[in-house]
Amino acid sequence: LDMDCLPYGWEEAYTADGIKYFINHVTQTTSWIHPVMSVLNLSRSE
């Protein structure tokens, strides 16, 4: 699993305190969880 590779439309950013988060420019949303990890967690719960 390549954690450096973000899906299309996603960008890694940091808060003023240096905390990493992710921006989805396609849906105009943000997430604290890496988008690949959130997809993996969803697929495990099914």
Rank of each mutant, 00 (worst) to 15 (best):
D2L: 09
G18Y: 03
C5Y: 10
Q28W: 05
L42Y: 02
I33R: 08
L40S: 14
L40D: 09
D4V: 04
H34R: 08
P7D: 07
A16M: 08
K20I: 02
S38K: 09
V36F: 09
G18P: 02
N41L: 05
A13I: 00
P35Y: 10
W10C: 00
G18M: 02
L6A: 05
A13R: 08
C5H: 12
D2W: 03
T30H: 04
Y8V: 13
P35H: 03
G9C: 01
M3C: 14
G9F: 01
S38M: 06
P35V: 01
W32K: 07
L40R: 13
P7W: 06
T27G: 11
Q28P: 03
C5A: 14
T15P: 08
H25D: 00
D2A: 09
D4M: 01
M37R: 15
E11M: 03
T27V: 02
I33L: 11
H25V: 06
Y14M: 07
E12G: 03
H34Y: 05
T29A: 08
E12H: 03
Y21R: 00
M37D: 15
T29H: 02
S45P: 12
L6C: 09
S45H: 09
N24L: 01
T15I: 04
K20H: 09
I23V: 13
F22K: 06
I33S: 13
P7Y: 04
E11R: 08
I19W: 07
A16E: 12
E11V: 08
M3I: 09
R44S: 13
T15N: 03
S38R: 09
M3S: 14
S38T: 04
P35F: 01
V39L: 09
W10K: 04
Y8S: 14
Q28E: 08
V36H: 14
V36D: 14
Y21Q: 07
N41E: 11
T27Y: 15
D17E: 10
V36C: 15
Q28I: 06
L1S: 15
T29G: 04
P35T: 05
G18S: 05
L42A: 12
E46F: 10
I23M: 04
L1W: 10
I33K: 10
L1V: 13
W10T: 02
I19Q: 15
T15Q: 05
N41F: 00
I33T: 12
S31A: 03
D17W: 02
N41M: 09
S45M: 00
T29K: 04
